[in-house]
Structure formats: C-alpha cells, structure tokens
Design a binder for these strands. Structure first.
Lengths: 172, 172
DNA sequence: TAATATGATTAAGCTTCTTAACTATTAAGT
DNA sequence: ACTTAATAGTTAAGAAGCTTAATCATATTA
C-alpha cells in the first residue's frame, strides 16, 4: 500500500467532525423521504415542528410566555438560517393550510404562526414512522452511552452556535 | 405557559437525531467559510480530502491496493451521493489544477484521480485553521467521552448508511 | 455474439441557502 | 417631537448541492 502522499495524521477531533457532518447529511436526506410521504419537504417539516414546539428540537429560545404562537424570525434564529430563507416556506405552509397566521397583539410588524389540525395530523403520521426507525437505530447503543451522546452533542451545538462568548463551560 | 397544543413526548432518540442534524448543518456551513479562503467550496474540499485519503474521513472502501489514485465513483459511494453530482466538481478541480486525472492501467472506462501539489497546499492551509478551531471545540469534553462519541457515531453511520443488511451489530 | 453492467458525463430541474433591496412599524437618541 | 436605528417580514437574483434520465464507451456475462 502506497501512503507516501498521505500527510494527514489520525486525529479524533477531525474524525468526530467528519462523522457528524456525514450523519447530519444522511438524516437530512432520509428526513426527506419520510416527510415527503406527508406532502412536506424536510424544511417544511422542521419548520412545522418548530411551530408545534416539539420538545426534542434543540431550542434557542421559547417565547411562549411572551406571546402565543411562533414568529418566523424565531424559527430562523433557532435554525441558524436567514429570515429570507424561511419566508417563502411559511407562505407555502399557510397556502396548504398546515399553519395559520395571526397579527401580533401589540406589535403590528409581527405575525404569529400556529399549527392547524391538518398540520398536526401530518406531523403525527411522520412521527409514527420516525419513532419506529429511530428506536431500531439506537437499539445497540447503551442507555448510558446515549445520555453521554446527548450531553456531548448539546455541548458541541451550544459551543459552535449561539454562544461563542461563553468563557466557562461545564465539562461533559 | 400554554402547552395544550404540545402532543409530543420528550424522547432521547429524537433529541439525538435533531442534534446531529443541526450540528451537521452547522459544520457544513462553517466548512464553507474555511474552505472558501483556499478558493474551494465545501464539496470541492471534501472531495479533495477523499482524493488525498485523509485518514479521518469515514471511509467505506480504500482501494489503494487495487489501483493507485481514486475513482470518481468511489468518492460518490463514500459520500453517499450520485456519480452525477461528483462529475462536474471533478472537472472544476482538474481545470483549477488541484488534481490530475490518469487513465486506468487496464480498464479504459476508469479514470484515476490524484492530488497535485497545489491541491495539497490548499488542504494544508485549510487544515491549520481547522485544527485550531476543532481542538478548542473539544476542550471541555473528556477524552473518555470523546472516544464514546466516536464509537457511537461510527456505529450510527454504519447502521444508517451502507450496511442495512447487518443482522448482528456490536453494542457500544 | 448478444445482452447486461459499469464508469463517466451532460442536461434539466428541485431544494436550500445566501445577500441585497424594499416596505412597514417600532424604539432610541438628542 | 423628530430624526435615526433597529426589527419583522417579503421579494428577487443567484450559488451550491443534489436528483433522475439519457447518452456514450468499455467490460463482463450468459
């Protein structure tokens, strides 16, 4: 085997990053297939989950106490994408009756988003299939390692996204 | 707080999936910024790493013993994407002298890909910046948890990608 | 030899994402 | 109070990554 051109060292950090990138890509593609059965694209589905406040989503902020419903800008912030990216998808979801839009009570720039019964039904049908696949996926990873996984991933996401100013972080 | 519309249960598997998806997306975007400094898109960079055989990439197959260099179809398989997706990017990389292409010794359908000095230099400059960021990123995750992370992620990737026929898998 | 499979490419089109420009409304500064 | 800033949302134009289908050349197999 000729490895003379291989200047790279084995490095566990790089390895983890590449694994995360590949797995993320895979789930985004696989999500496509499942969501498509309910007539949604992956993004539409994720946005719908945000509006329905799925408790398993990594959430930056939950303003349910401040106002009922969800703002497009809050979804964009949670997803780490631009508002411009969310906007046309919201329009489609409204047009297809998965969600409704209301005027904010005091701030007329804002429009709050609310999931409809049809949207809820779509999420439920997707959820069933997902739950089945996911549970099988984690079958052979121990409970203990699953909880280490969650902690480490939350820590990584917090570090790379919203909180670059954090000086002290808990070790995991 | 009004949670009457929240029919979803807290579920660690869903939580992990969403975290993986978000983190994957983030790294793909962040990779963009770093790769761009070397004049590459994320995909170009990943493909270049495949051709240079970075040992940290999750690899399905390494055919270095079968033939020197890398085939476009091997890269597509490793990345889990179609050959059609890879093709124009290979052309660009050749045009920009990051890689070279040679005829396969015995099979004239095949074209083997080889990284050039310019390609190697680009990878080195990207690598430096990445190494610095990555090491900081994992600062507060213990060595032990890092190795659990690698094992679990490898297991997940193997399960979801190439090996759906596997009946028995090692517990991690 | 004929049918089939493999490797690579091209064309057309979809989804996700971006930045920039725009409107409307609210908040802040002086 | 009045001008300036920031915030919420939309739209337009375009880049990147992906797909399937069609095509061509070469290899394999039956």
């Amino acid at each position: 085997m000729n490895n003379s051109h291989n200047i790279f060292e084995k490095n566990i950090h790089d390895e983890i990053i590449f694994l995360l990138s590949d797995i993320g890509n895979f789930f985004n593609k696989k999500g496509d297939l499942i969501a498509k059965k309910a007539g949604l694209t992956t993004l539409q589905w994720i946005i719908l989950l945000n509006i329905a406040r799925d408790p398993n989503l990594p959430v930056v902020k939950d303003n349910d106490m401040v106002h009922p419903g969800v703002l497009a800008s809050e979804i964009a912030e949670n997803r780490g994408v631009s508002r411009a990216n969310i906007s046309p998808i919201i329009s489609t979801l409204i047009k297809n009756k998965y969600i409704t839009q209301k005027d904010h009570s005091t701030d007329r720039r804002r429009k709050t988003l609310h999931i409809s019964q049809k949207g809820m039904n779509a999420l439920k049908s997707i959820q069933e299939e997902r739950r089945f696949l996911n549970d099988r996926l984690f079958d052979s990873i121990s409970k203990n390692n699953q909880s280490i996984l969650v902690q480490s991933l939350q820590h990584l996401l917090n570090t790379v996204s919203g909180f670059p100013h954090e000086e002290k972080t808990d070790s995991v």
